[in-house]
Amino acid sequence: MFTDRLLLLAPRINETGLQLLTAAHARGLPARTATGWRAPQDVPPLVHLYGGPLYADAVGRELGVAALEELPGWLAELPRELTRRSVELLPLAEARALRRRAFCKPPSDKLFAARVYQDGSGLPGPDALPDDQPVLVSEVVTFRREYRLFVLDGVVRTGSRYAVDGELDVAPLAEDPLHREVAAFAADLLAAGAAGLPSAVVVDVGLLAGGGWAVVEANPAWASGGYACDPGEVLDVVLRAAGPLTELRAADRPYCRELPVVTG
């Protein structure tokens, strides 16, 4: 039984959050859903978080949490044999000037819709987001199948299929007919693209319509849905991904989200 730590979930709990509560209680780890968007006072000294960026920003600093996320340019810096498409990290001002079709998304926070834009004129203007806001700009490709992988210390701990031909289609990775190919590509990716990733993270990969495997993106484990992943394994990754700052590993320091000081 743990007496000095707590898994705290954001108020807007989802299916993965419910699974994490069950998995935590099964191993004797106290876990509960927050009742509001302020840091609760009745918590033990060591807190882990699961929830979106808004909740991490609202309470993480006050609770002494280190929230790990991939570096903004990780996807853009991967070799083309892993992305199978051109990917650039651009300031929003340059992205707005694009006069070609591209898939555009914020590197981490959902500051605007991640989708295919016919050109940069559809991106948020300077009145909405600053010119230096980073944007990932990718060549448009079509994924036939997509998979979510929860990674801890460079090893895939659990995985799930989540889409087929762009439609939600969830199944445990082990039940997917291409699970061995997914595992092989993931091993190659983690061997070649570990730089830029924290020790606990989510990586999405997929099979392209034209053939070949490619990285879709990386995401913070503490803000990612588990689909049909094993909840106990997801919990292990989440606990590392957003845990006590006092337990932060030196190698993970470059991947700590800059959490704001919340006043009022």
Results as ranks from 00 to 15, higher is better:
P134R: 11
V205D: 01
V116H: 14
A183P: 00
D169G: 09
L208P: 02
R145V: 03
L178R: 14
G210E: 10
L123N: 03
F103A: 08
A186K: 12
D165A: 15
A192C: 06
G212V: 04
R100P: 03
A214H: 05
A113Y: 13
G125E: 10
A114D: 02
G210T: 05
G159P: 01
L149Y: 11
P198C: 08
S160W: 01
A171D: 04
G166Q: 08
P177E: 12
G212A: 10
A191Q: 03
D165H: 13
G122C: 05
Y162F: 15
W213L: 08
Y147K: 07
F112G: 02
A184K: 10
L190M: 08
A114L: 11
P107C: 15
Y147L: 00
R101W: 00
P198W: 04
T158D: 06
G122V: 06
V164Q: 15
P130W: 04
Q133C: 13
A192N: 07
D165Q: 13
A192R: 14
R99I: 02
P106T: 11
R145E: 07
G210Y: 04
A191R: 04
V182I: 03
L173N: 02
Y117P: 05
G196N: 08
D169T: 03
L98E: 00
R157G: 09
A114R: 05
